[in-house]
């Protein structure tokens, strides 16, 4: 009886897990089998023709990279500053530190469509930029900040207390300790937080929907005002709504495969780093 119950429990949970695994496998399988038909050197290096029915996705890839690079530049200083402030400059477990942690968590959960509308208020409404790559980059940057800041702060909190004490015992000022101990030893965490955030940002459609992306007619931006970009997620978003056009389907799946590859790469790169951090945290 006991044995049977145990078997049942293992079987039910196990089949759920198998279902999840199967789901992940099926998604990967569909994307690869359907997408790989479109993938060729030409697909990656040509511009789109016939509204997606032929040609490639060169400028969509370029636009996404531009947006992500801008987001990284915008997010890095703020994420670093917020993470250090939260975990080192504010007294640990004090009210300000907890409030800042709470704000970062909430920011992490803000629906991305609200960022898109925020872009309309700030960049279209106030600054009159129209559609601009910079607006999209800044919005995606804001999206990354909490992810990277929280990972950095957690790492700083798990740094060996002894080293921080020893440095303080030498009369080093807080700024010295930041530069000589905290940043060198938590850079990996910051980087992996940035990578995870960037991966998410690369696939986001909602923040760039209104203020940064167009479907055609843009290449490399040359200024800020009315300088939109093409972007992979937006391209897929538009084509998906026209999915009855048989001609564009192959290329649509091709674009989807490229996007998923693009967002998986940084996440994969971050895995070994996170494992190292996990272990370090366990041994601390």
């Amino acid at each position: 009886m006991k044995k049977a119950l145990q078997l049942l429990s293992a079987l039910t949970t196990g089949s759920a897990a198998a279902g999840v695994l199967l789901l992940a496998g099926a998604l990967a399988f569909v994307l690869i089998t359907r997408g790989s038909a479109a993938i060729s050197p030409a697909f990656l290096t040509q511009e789109t023709r016939e509204a997606g029915a032929s040609g490639g996705i060169l400028w969509q890839i370029a636009g996404t990279l531009i947006l992500v690079a801008t987001a990284a530049l915008v997010a890095l200083p703020f994420a670093t500053a917020l993470g250090i402030t939260r975990a080192w400059l504010l007294p640990p477990q004090s009210r300000p530190a907890r409030v800042l942690g709470f704000i970062l968590q909430l920011l992490n959960a803000v629906p991305s469509i609200l960022l898109g509308i925020l872009g309309l208020i700030l960049f279209t409404g106030m600054l009159g930029w129209g559609k601009s790559w910079l607006a999209g980059g800044v919005l995606l940057g804001i999206m990354i900040v909490p992810t990277a800041a929280v990972m950095l702060a957690n790492r700083i909190e798990s740094l060996p207390r002894g080293q921080l004490d020893a440095a303080a015992g030498l009369g080093l000022r807080r700024g010295h300790i930041i530069r000589s101990i905290i940043l060198p030893q938590s850079a990996a965490a910051l980087l992996s937080g940035m990578l995870l955030g960037l991966a998410r940002a690369a696939g986001e459609t909602a923040p760039i929907l209104f203020v940064a992306a167009v479907f055609s007619g843009a290449t490399i931006p040359t200024g800020i005002h009315e300088q939109p970009v093409l972007a992979l997620p937006y391209h897929i978003f538009v084509l998906a709504q026209d999915s009855f056009q048989e001609a564009s389907r192959t290329n649509l799946w091709g674009a989807a495969l490229v996007l998923v590859t693009l967002v998986s790469l940084p996440a994969l790169a971050a895995i070994p780093m996170r494992h190292k951090l996990h272990n370090a945290a366990d041994h601390a």
Binding site: A17, V20, L21, L23, A24, G25, L27, A28, V30, L31, A199, R200, A202, G203, E204, T205, A206, P233, I236, F237, A240, Q241, S243, L252, A256, L259, V260, V263, S264, A267, I271, H275
Partner: peptide
């Protein structure tokens, strides 16, 4: 365990526009 978690993380990493595409297609 890491392999199972990797599969879960893969599901989490897929952009929502791709889920939308799968929704439309299937």
């Amino acid at each position: 365990r890491p392999w199972a978690k990797a599969a879960v993380e893969f599901l989490a990493a897929i952009p929502s526009v791709i889920y939308g595409l799968l929704g439309i297609m299937f």
